[in-house]
Amino acid sequence: MEFLRPRTWNEAVAVKAAHPEALALAGGTDVMVELNFDRTRPASLLDLTGVDDLAHWALDGDVLRLGAGVTYSRVVDELGFALPGLATASRTVGSPQIRNRGTIAGNLGSASPAGDAHPALLAAGAEVEVESVRGVRHVPVAEFFAGPKRHVLEPDELIKAILVRPASGPQEFAKIGTRNAMVIAVCSFGLALHPHARRVGTGIGSAAATPRRALDAERFVSEELDWQGRGPLPDGVARRFGELVAHAAEPIDDGRGTARYRVHALAVMARRTLGWAWAAYRKG
């Protein structure tokens, strides 16, 4: 197996063009598991951890650029204010060791329906900045997933950054697991209030072939909420929102939970997270 270790981003993109079969390696918390189990045997590994500046984040105009090397721990420690939904999601990932190594970009690269970053990124309306020698393109996270563990990257493309606006309103993330830490999501839900746009963003995890938004629920609740007057959240609205989120899911029965439970739990999480976010919004 060849081990490719570029030093600069341009070099990385060039190497990927020359070796489209090379498997990108960030924190390795998914890749090394796959290799150890002999589930994948790539001809070469493209280690991105030596690339300068990839592990940085910065505000670029009104958008935050999260370099592909930014780990969960960094998000928890440094971006709790700017990206509260993603930070809450990051806190639920694995153990401290995994959070220190694992990256948000790696979560996207694996494209697991259960990836914890995805619902938060969906709700926040993030985009993935993708680059190859052919150029740069921006893929909304909602269009990034192509199926279970599949995404829309071309073989010569790499994720360079994740672009997301800092939160303009409260954000929440909730995840069901059958133990209280270190658990793969049975299902999960991300929610973001975008008060300027008077819009609510959502993301559903682990309850369909890919992470997805609950569009009907977003439309419904965005219209029902009293953005101007910051009035209380009618119980019926919260409930209906929960139902619509549940409707958007297409879960299966598996060893981690039943479809029925996932549908039910999504409705509860959606209702609760909306309540928390709205209460925070009302407080200003």
Binding site: A174, N180, W276
Partner: peptide, 12 residues
């Protein structure tokens, strides 16, 4: 219940 997975703030 749920721990840092943030599923309840006391509800239920």
């Amino acid at each position: 219940p749920g721990g840092v997975s943030n599923t309840t703030h006391g509800e239920g």
